[in-house]
Design a protein around this nucleic acid. Structure first.
Lengths: 362, 362
DNA sequence: CTGAAAGCGCTTACAG
DNA sequence: CTGAAAGCGCTTACAG
């Protein structure tokens, strides 16, 4: 009769309790260390024991507690994505595309992704480094950075692996993976000039962002080489937004009624510019050509569809993730990766008016 | 002379090693438990010791290791956001707006947010529950779900706090916070009918999504009450995308050349529909009124600007986060929250052609 | 090839 | 009001 007690569940171990490494070890009559090594593929364990234990793990439905794993192993297998403190950062197709690349690659590499926003108090409290110091993550990917983000220097100081995504900052030695903005801007300018445009306006934004400065630089250089004088009234800040783009276009068109083309530093500003042009009764592209930069999804669905530079944002995210993990694993060389961009010609651009008047031109 | 050794740094403790609870305790000449309790605001510790230790913590720059904290305390203070397995889920303004609300609220509540995508293999391997079982997170927020997502039932079975965001599923008892889709659709239909529209097409999508079914239901009921016969050729699936919306509009306009209004189940499809209308030489809104659903940011920046239903997505995300934490803390009552929606009238809608012909109407 | 022990850095009862 | 001990669930040397 006393034997009847045996199958009774142990009170100190509720039936539904999650099974631990020790439970498996006990069941297999080996040490916890052995089970751990089997799970981690340590070749020291004999194939026989390994398969026997693997089966048992399967059968018992054992799931390692990652807190314990990480506490022991010192690796969290989590990385943080830092977004800028913009109200619509998460709803922004630009960041979304990068994050998509990051998450897909992370999944494949066995990493999890934590989302953070670089709000003022957050960085003031050094939370961005705490993320690493307190063992939330193994490294940080920074999106939407600019030169004023002095907290970027904190990562190196704390020994936290970090990488800038689609931007670079000279001041701090931080790794980066970026799109080739300079080449993109050159392609736009070459194309517009080929179409006969001379009076070309630039809607720029974020001159504290190195990549944006490169676009402006390329624009100025091309016009300069052409002998077109481009004073500052040809360049207006559009704040990266549709509203800003519309306002900037308004300023440009007021100052230069003869303007035949507008090159915007991103698709959103280009869309705002087109909006403003239409509001003024201008036809796009007949009266005004508009070019964007980004190739966001809906650039192909506005009216007219937008000529723009395609940025390989998904690939930039994916590659940045990969490089960051290499850094985490101790790769010493600094990373400076540049991915190619290319022009997508759609409906928002046409020959400049003056040139179309010339005979023999098609 | 032997005393000279004392200040020499202990070899077993590298100078740069991160300071631990024990280091603080040793320095303060109290037990680790005491320091821990001070940090956790346990009132058992005298004010004197508490402030003394707090100052020391500050001075030594102590940062608690959250892995150790979580392993002991059983709380991770992390929640997961599960996105659907769509290629552009992260770049989608709809999800972005919700995530924004979630992250802001999470930050305020001391929670971190982990990003996951419900890819087929992910859910097949039960990774969505593992997230909880393996102690990555304390709970899960599910976005973009539908009736075919049978894995939603796994959360309850595993005792994992979970919540559906902006959708509900009858089959499983999962909490939810949603926008009032039924009321939104009613507002659209009332408005269009008031404008004199009778031949109204519906571009729908995701009939395996309860919220989408509610929109369709409201559409059908309103037309039925009006005595307008609406056969199935008035309802076309647009797959939630611009392309799908354009194709759906094409079908609708082919089948019903007399159609004066199209109501799309989301803004993207509405934009696609407008695109198709313009392609056919129809003027929006003069020839065809188009109404969207979502009120995404760029709905106000397309041409013409889009009349649509505003969905409080940020608030839905924020509220879902709050409710989830309540659930994690043991709140027993199931959550079914519904947030109000409202019509935003912009430029894409006008009086129906036939009615404008009638005298005395304004 | 495997085990026993120590340790990761906290929190939580249990004493006093 | 505070301390010593046990424990969270793993991994990593150290032995043999």
């Amino acid at each position: 009769m006393a034997n009847l007690q045996e199958p009774r569940p142990d009170v100190s171990r509720p039936v539904n309790r999650v099974v631990s490494l020790r439970d498996v070890a006990k069941e297999a009559k080996v040490s916890a260390a052995t089970v751990s090594m089997v799970l981690n593929g340590n070749p020291r364990i004999s194939r026989a024991t390994a398969t026997r234990i693997q089966r048992l793990v399967e059968r018992m439905g054992y799931q390692p507690n990652r807190l314990a794993q990480s506490l022991s192993s010192k690796h969290t297998h989590v990385i943080a994505v830092m977004l800028p403190a913009l109200r619509h950062a998460f709803a922004d197709a630009y960041f979304g595309e990068i994050i998509s690349g990051i998450c897909d690659k992370a999944g494949k590499m066995g990493y999890k992704v934590m989302l953070e926003q670089a709000k003022p108090e957050f960085v003031k409290d050094k939370q961005h480094v705490r993320l690493y110091e307190r063992r939330f993550v193994d490294g940080v990917l920074c999106l939407g950075t600019n030169d004023r983000h002095r907290w970027l220097g904190d990562f190196a100081a704390a020994g936290c692996p970090a990488m800038l995504v689609d931007n670079a900052v000279d001041e701090f030695k931080v790794d980066s993976v970026v799109c080739d903005y300079a080449s993109g801007a050159e392609q736009v300018m070459n194309y517009l000039i080929q179409l006969g445009h001379r009076r070309i306006g630039l809607i720029t934004a974020g001159q504290d962002i190195k990549m944006a400065r490169r676009v402006r630089k390329a624009y100025e250089t091309q016009l300069h080489n052409l002998g077109v004088d481009c004073n500052d009234t040809c360049i207006v800040d559009g704040k990266f937004t549709e509203e800003g783009g519309a306002a900037a276009a308004s300023k440009l068109l007021d100052a230069h009624p003869d303007m035949t083309a507008i090159f915007a530093g991103n698709d959103k500003m280009a869309i705002g510019a087109m909006h403003e042009a239409v509001r003024r009764g201008l036809r796009v592209p007949a009266d005004l050509s508009v070019v964007g930069f980004d190739d966001l999804r809906h650039a192909a669905f506005i009216n007219p569809t937008l000529t723009t530079i395609h940025l390989p944002l998904y690939e930039v995210g994916s590659s940045a993730m990969e490089r960051l993990v290499e850094r985490i694993h101790g790769r010493p060389e600094p990373v400076k990766e540049v991915l190619p961009t290319h022009l997508i010609v759609r409906q928002s651009t046409a020959m400049a008016k003056t040139t179309t008047a010339a005979p023999g031109q098609n």
